[in-house]
């Protein structure tokens, strides 16, 4: 009788807690009202769940897609070139990727500004020198930096992948979607229609349009279909947003096991102590 509120609470919370633990990293963020947003496609990412791991060959393919396609407009300013060692790039490969870019160097003896090739210690160099330049080259809308894009969107990796593969033709757009006045939705000049974008209008042209657009370098790579490239680059961006995810989940297992033992022991000790006092606690 005394403990009934707790039991009721337990009954309510237990299934939810178990579900949350089982689903692990795949727990979707709480849905925040987004009008007519379409739920993203659920992908079985290797990094989903309690035992989720990054697929490093996939991340390297994704890096290649980023470098050859996305990097033309999108920065990755929070990631350093040295970080790429974590996904299996050699120092020579890292130096090659970094060396293609230029960064501001120390002033020379005359005090004139200089530039030098980027080094592993540098962060990914932005494609545009400043926001104004980025806006000027992109119809007035600066392309967002991608370092945290997977964590900065509801639906996370599923959303980014869905967006990349969610473009529809103008004709289909008119048929499927309505604007705020309830009329068929027509993208304006320089705009595109995308199922998963909030409001279904996006300023980014479809970035991955044909199979084989990127020629995967690594042996054993799957065919570079649009779908595969989209998945690979999304996985890479998931890593870029959360490079310590694997370490986190691994440590989590140890911590949870320890805590289970600790809690079990404490329960046993408490029961033992309680035995001495009749009818208490």
């Amino acid at each position: 009788m005394i403990r009934s509120p707790l039991r009721a609470l337990h009954r309510l919370l237990a299934p939810a807690a178990i579900a949350a633990v089982l689903a692990g990293g795949a727990v979707p963020a709480p849905a925040f009202a987004a009008g007519d947003a379409v739920a993203p496609k659920a992908v079985a990412w290797t990094f989903n769940g309690v035992f989720g791991r990054y697929d490093y060959p996939q991340l390297r393919r994704g890096l290649q897609v980023y470098n050859e396609v996305c990097a033309a407009c999108h920065g990755l300013r929070l990631v350093a070139y040295r970080d790429l060692a974590a996904i299996g790039l050699s120092e020579a490969q890292i130096r090659t990727i970094a060396g293609d870019k230029e960064v501001a160097g120390e002033p020379d003896e005359e005090g004139e500004p200089t530039v030098r090739p980027a080094e592993p210690k540098d962060r990914f160099v932005d494609p545009f020198p400043n926001v104004q330049a980025a806006m000027a080259s992109n119809n007035g809308a600066a392309p967002p930096d991608l370092s945290l894009i997977v964590k900065a969107r509801g639906g996370a990796a599923d959303y980014v992948y869905s967006l990349l593969t969610g473009y529809v033709s103008e004709a289909a757009c008119k048929k499927q979607f309505k604007d705020s006045q309830g009329n068929p939705l027509v993208p304006a000049e320089g705009q595109y229609c995308n199922t998963y974008m909030s409001g279904h209008i996006i300023a980014m042209a479809p970035p991955l349009t044909e199979d084989g657009q990127v020629e995967y370098e690594e042996a054993g790579a799957p065919p570079a279909s649009v779908d595969q490239m989209s998945k690979d680059v999304t996985a890479f961006l998931a890593w870029a947003a959360e490079p310590y995810m694997v370490e986190r989940k691994r440590m989590g297992i140890k911590v949870m096991l320890f805590l289970l033992l600790f809690t079990g022991f404490m329960y046993a000790i408490y029961r033992q102590v309680k035995k001495d006092v009749k009818g208490s606690a």
Binding site: A20, I269, K274
Partner: peptide, 28 residues
């Protein structure tokens, strides 16, 4: 001892969030 047992249960819930859903309660 009862509080230490409760602490264990609490830390299990806490750790489940920290290690497996660290951004669930935040806003993207």
């Amino acid at each position: 001892t009862k509080d230490l047992f409760g602490t264990g249960v609490f830390l299990l819930v806490f750790a489940a969030f920290v290690f497996y859903a660290p951004n669930y309660l935040g806003h993207p």
